[in-house]
């Protein structure tokens, strides 16, 4: 079997180093020895294909998972999943999780003194359509304090997890909201030096997606790694 193309390596400054001292949890959890360069073999250009058969109705509507409506500002987030070559990535799983409008996660380890919402779990999932589009309806999460440094607050964010077509396209990241004053102080948002890479983590307000008298729209596109143009040399 001839070798197939691998995936492009990251552009400098666009992906974080494991050690980022401003984010204190990296100090004891980042490898101290050099990473070993991994040529992309069949083991990595393949990966789990988990699709629409596991998605149920309301899985992408976080406001419709309980008897009542959750508290907070109703929003619709949509966007396109593309690869680095600009091609849509159809049929892939997108998982999200988030805090409620008060900035509290429905998680036993979240001890923030803010109310839980009995009508909000904060979990969603969907599959991209044939053109790579996804959509969620949810409420805008609140900011919340954390113990990283004195008076540390996470900006409002939604966690995203995507598989893509291979092990190498696996992506876990966070989406932020425009105009959030906490972004400037957040060591996680600022874990890469490339300004445009950071700004691409911020959704944009989308008036066309906004539903009158109902919900604000936001657009957020996601880019997964793309294939190299040429196979590795034989």
């Amino acid at each position: 079997m001839s070798d197939k193309p691998g995936y492009r390596r990251p552009q400098a400054g666009t992906q974080p180093d494991y050690l980022h001292p401003a984010y204190q949890s990296t100090n004891l959890r980042s490898p101290s020895k050099p990473l070993v360069f991994l040529p992309h073999s069949l083991s990595e250009i393949t990966g789990p294909t988990i699709g629409a058969e596991r998605i149920a109705e309301h899985d992408n509507d976080l406001t419709a998972q309980h008897d009542g409506e959750p508290q907070g500002e109703r929003i619709i987030i949509h966007g396109r999943v593309l690869d680095e070559n600009g091609l849509p990535v159809p049929g892939i799983l997108v998982e999200i999780w988030q805090a409620n409008a008060a900035g509290r996660y429905n998680h036993k380890r979240d001890l923030h003194d803010a109310p839980l919402d009995p009508n909000f779990t904060g979990t969603g999932r969907t599959v991209t359509d044939a053109d790579g589009w996804y959509q969620f309806q949810t409420i805008k999460p609140g900011a919340y304090p954390w113990g990283n440094h004195h008076n540390a607050w996470r900006p409002a964010h939604i966690h995203f997890s995507l598989f893509g077509p291979s092990v190498l396209t696996r992506l876990v990241t966070q989406m932020y909201f425009p105009g959030d004053p906490l972004l400037a102080y957040d060591p996680i948002y600022n874990c890469v030096p490339d300004t445009s890479a950071k700004e691409r983590l911020i959704a944009s307000f989308d008036l066309e997606k906004t539903v009158p008298h109902y919900a604000l729209g936001y657009r957020w596109d996601i880019v997964l790694r793309g294939r190299d143009a040429t196979p590795m040399e034989k």
Binding site: R8, P10, Q11, T14, Q15, P16, Y23, S25, L82, D83, E84, N85, G86, E95, I96, W97, Y105, N106, H107, R109, D110, T121, G122, T123, G124, R125, H159, S161, L171, V172, T173, Q174, I188, C191, V192, A197, K198, R200, L201, I222, V223, L224, R225, G226
Partner: peptide, 20 residues
Amino acid sequence: MTLNATTSHTVGPYYHIGLT
């Protein structure tokens, strides 16, 4: 068209609610 992959961020301590 050439794009750069979206920056990776941590799963954080509360990933269970979304991933389990």
